[in-house]
């Protein structure tokens, strides 16, 4: 494990952007998070993998405040955010994408991005004097859509877009929020193979100090993207290491072959 530890030590030089301390959550007998400890240093590129039902999406929901943990704490840039409502966590820079598209279906793509930018710039409250501010949001949104390869679709309503493009739009919106920590919940699910490249490039263009955690089943994408991989099983962190270590880890292989974890 020396390889990973060394890298870990490197990034640890910077304070973690996001720290998770002893996070627990169960629904009755079903435990989805069991004493999870995880640090995301600035610039982290972490892939979170695990079999179905390992609690990956629940973990993201706990981080973003969609679920309330039974115990434990989440710190964003050294400040506890446990009591903040989900939208306030977003304002602090903790941004996620959803597994299933949650977009404004009856609104043009451009405006979907522009209102996110307006919220980021804190001009979402403006009612009367908004002309230049809003135009700037539209301009930025247009540039971001073009970068995602959605330039020609900017005036189409979201519900008219094919599913793959809706996925790209969701990611464009998340990036437009200029996150400090970005949680990607299966970003490539449903995106045609040729278009995952756009996602990958866009993620590559993000500022290096942004921490990214990606849940993904497409192992190609995970191994291309992640510098470090965390494996989750039954609500616990099983192991953490570099892609090559994970690929050669017996326990991980066992998990994916469906045998029980010791």
């Amino acid at each position: 494990m020396s390889d990973a530890e060394a890298r870990h030590a490197n990034t640890l030089g910077a304070a973690p952007v996001l720290s998770v301390r002893g996070l627990c959550k169960s629904f009755g007998a079903l435990t989805v998070a069991q004493d999870i400890e995880l640090d995301l240093p600035g610039g982290a590129r972490i892939g979170l993998i695990g079999p179905n039902g390992a609690g990956k999406t629940s973990f993201v929901n706990l981080l973003t405040g969609m679920l309330r943990p039974d115990a434990g704490s989440v710190l964003l840039e050294d400040r506890a955010i446990d009591r903040l409502r989900p939208e306030l966590r977003v304002r602090r820079g903790l941004v996620r994408t959803h597994q299933i598209n949650t977009l404004l279906a009856e609104t043009p793509a451009l405006e979907n991005v522009a209102i996110a930018i307006a919220e980021r710039k804190r001009i979402g409250w403006r009612m009367l004097r908004y002309g230049t501010g809003w135009r700037a949001c539209l301009d930025e949104a247009e540039a971001r859509l073009a970068a995602m390869g959605l330039g020609d679709d900017r005036l189409r309503l979201v519900r008219e877009l094919p599913y793959g493009k809706q996925r790209l739009l969701e990611i464009a919106i998340a990036l437009a929020l200029k996150p400090r920590v970005l949680l990607l919940d299966e970003p490539a699910a449903g995106v045609p193979a040729g278009e995952t490249r756009a996602i990958h490039e866009q993620l590559g263009d993000l500022p290096q100090d942004v921490a990214i955690l990606m849940i993904e089943h497409d192992m190609d994408l995970v191994f291309r993207f992640a510098r470090e991989i965390v494996v989750m099983v039954q609500g616990r962190v099983l192991t953490r290491g570099s892609p090559s270590e994970i690929a050669n880890d017996d326990r991980v292989r066992e998990v994916y072959l469906g045998r029980r974890v010791r």
Binding site: R91, R96, E111, I123, W125
Partner: peptide, 23 residues
């Protein structure tokens, strides 16, 4: 206005609006 457009968004999809940080 941006405010009005955020209302339009809230009607369509509250989750989306929370996800972009709208109070």
């Amino acid at each position: 206005s941006p405010f009005g457009r955020s209302l339009d968004g809230i009607r369509q999809n509250v989750r989306r609006m929370r996800a972009i940080g709208t109070p």
